[in-house]
Every structure is written in structure tokens, then in C-alpha cells.
Amino acid sequence: MIRPHEEKVPSYLFAGDDLPPTQARDLLRERFSANFDLVLPPAGPIRVDGAKHLGLMFGGMAILWRQMYVHGITRGAALIRSSQIDHYILTVSLEQKGPTLHVFDDGRVLEQRAGEPVVLDMARPIHLDIQSGTDLTLFIPRDALDELLPRRLDLHGVKLQGTVAALLIEHLRTVVREGSGLHPAEGQLLSRSTLHLLAACLAPMSNSMALARPQAEHLLVRRIGQYVESRLADPDLSVEQLCAAFDLSRSSLYRLLEPMGGVAAFIRERRLSKAHQLLAGAQERVHLKRVADEFGFRSAAQFSRAFHDQFGYSPSEARGWIAPLADSSSPLQSEARRFATWLYSLHH
């Protein structure tokens, strides 16, 4: 469970022993659904006895230790667009029965063995096949790490090696073991030291042209996203405005945003993500007409249709999604929702 306390960093603890095999599949998927698709063994009851998750959130970062079952994790284009999380993740296999396999869009396959840290970019597709055992996952704000590096690097699928990487693993183990008693101010300091240690692992790689290839288009897409989010209430936000603001031709803008579904989808998804954030935190009734106006939709009906198309449920179902923990009627469903809420709060 999450144990909020104003004098300690937020922490999270989950044990799978209480999950009935007939419900485990759906509950586990719900735990990951905001950011990942969970791939489990073929249909039928599954047992996750002995599975445990322990997490801490500190200084804009989060770390998750898992004792787990055989499963896969994917993050495709639809989830990348809908969650809009802008983090790196560092995964470390600690003790596993076999290597974790990373499969990339270009066909490359990376084997990650115990003790090998790998960096992944959550703005890029992810597919992992994971064996039973234990691992660590660190969620890292992109800007916080990028500003410590000598140049922009393509870190997706980078395996860290050497003495500093070994020190980083021991540091993360200590964070999990001792971090639950941290004061939030100490968590901020710990976050900075963790970032600097990770940057030290990456610094020797900065001279590699394969890693340091130009990132101009990726950075431009992020700047366009920030521009759009500053003008969400403008229903007339247009291609012409974006072209003028960034000195782009129409064809260049369309080519740049085509992987995100096009210009209109890019704008709509940012509007809907911010609207979801507002509704998820609401504990009282919210008038949909006001939400529609605030986020640039011409009517409540248009907003409701777009919201359902994007998330698969209605705005009224999203209201109060980040709810007080005591409001849940089912302990098992509440436990699944707590984890998703915890990660959701990391990037909103």
C-alpha cells in the first residue's frame, strides 16, 4: 500500500500472495495500464505467489524493486501518445533465471543479463521479455539528466558498463533498502546524487557518434508540444500558427508530426491529456462544458466523444481517478489502482 506521510518520501508496497488466480490477470494489467501493456502467459488462471513490488518516489524520480513472474512489457505508439510521459528508465536485472530480452523497432535484440543496467527512452517503443527473478527500475526525468550530459545522446537501449555502473547498482540497492525513512528534503539531495552518478556512467560514451547523433527533430517536437500546451484554450490553434511560430513549411510540420498521428492528432492528444489530468484529480462534480471550453473543444459533446475515443472510457469515469485511498470499495481493485495512480502522479 501507499503510506503517505508529510515527513517521509512516498513509498509503495505490493504483494501478489493475496491475488486470486482467477483475478490476477486483470488486476496486474490494470496496475501497468497507464504506461505499459503487460503480456502474460496464455489465457487461463495465473499464479503470482511470492511476487512483490517495493517503490519509492523522491525528488521527481521513482525507483521500483520487483520480485516477479515471467512476463512481457510493451509500450507502443498509442501509449506513448496517450501517457505523454517524458522520462528515461534505467532497468537492472538483479537475479533472474535467464536474460531479459529487449526487442527494438529496427529488429535489434539486446540481451540483458544479471547486473547489467540498460537505459530506455519512454518516448520510444519498448518491448521486454522478462524472466522470473528480481530487478530494479528507475524512472528519470529527461530534462534533469540531459542537462548533466555534455551533449544530447540517444540513450534508448544503451547498456552501462564499468566500475561506475557497478557503483550505481549498489547505490540503487541501498536506496531501496534504506530510502523509506527519507525526509522529502533528503529525497531531493538523493535524487541529485543519483543523477550525477548516472551521468558519470554515460559521460565516457558522449564521444560515440552513434549515441550523439543529432537530436534536433526530437527537441523540436518537444518545443512544439510545449507551445501547444500553452495555448490549449484556443480552439483555432492551427497548422498556420505552428508553422509561423517555428518557421516551418506545412510539409515540414506534417512530416515532423506524422509519427504522432499528424498535426490534428498531436494537438488533440495534448488537450485530452491535460483534461484527463484535471478530471482525475477532481473530487467533486466537474461541468464538462467548462472543461471543453478550457481545453479548446467547441462543445461538451465534442469533448466527450474525443475523450472516449482516446482513453476508452467517458470523462465521468475518469473523475476522481486519483482518489483518496480510503474511497475504494474493493481492496484488490484498490491495490491495482494505487500502483497506476502512483506512477501517474510521477509525470503529471
Rank of each mutant, 00 (worst) to 15 (best):
S11W: 07
W342F: 14
H5W: 14
E178C: 05
P45G: 04
A275D: 04
R231P: 06
L202E: 09
A233Y: 13
R177M: 05
R305P: 00
D143C: 02
A326N: 02
S314W: 13
V286D: 01
D129E: 08
K8H: 05
F295T: 07
Y227W: 14
G157F: 11
T74F: 05
L197H: 04
G262E: 11
R298L: 15
I85G: 06
A300E: 06
D135C: 15
H5S: 14
V118Y: 11
A300V: 05
G225N: 03
H5Y: 14
I89G: 07
A340S: 14
D121T: 10
D247L: 00
S299E: 12
G225P: 04
T134S: 10
H196V: 04
T91G: 11
F14W: 08
D49R: 08
G262N: 09
R250F: 00
R81M: 12
G181L: 15
L13H: 15
A43H: 04
F266T: 12
T91S: 02
R285K: 11
R222Q: 10
S273E: 06
S82P: 01
G55K: 03
K8I: 09
Q84Y: 07
P117V: 13
A318N: 08
M68Q: 08
H196Q: 12
S316I: 15
A199E: 01
E30F: 10
R223Q: 15
Q96Y: 00
A114V: 09
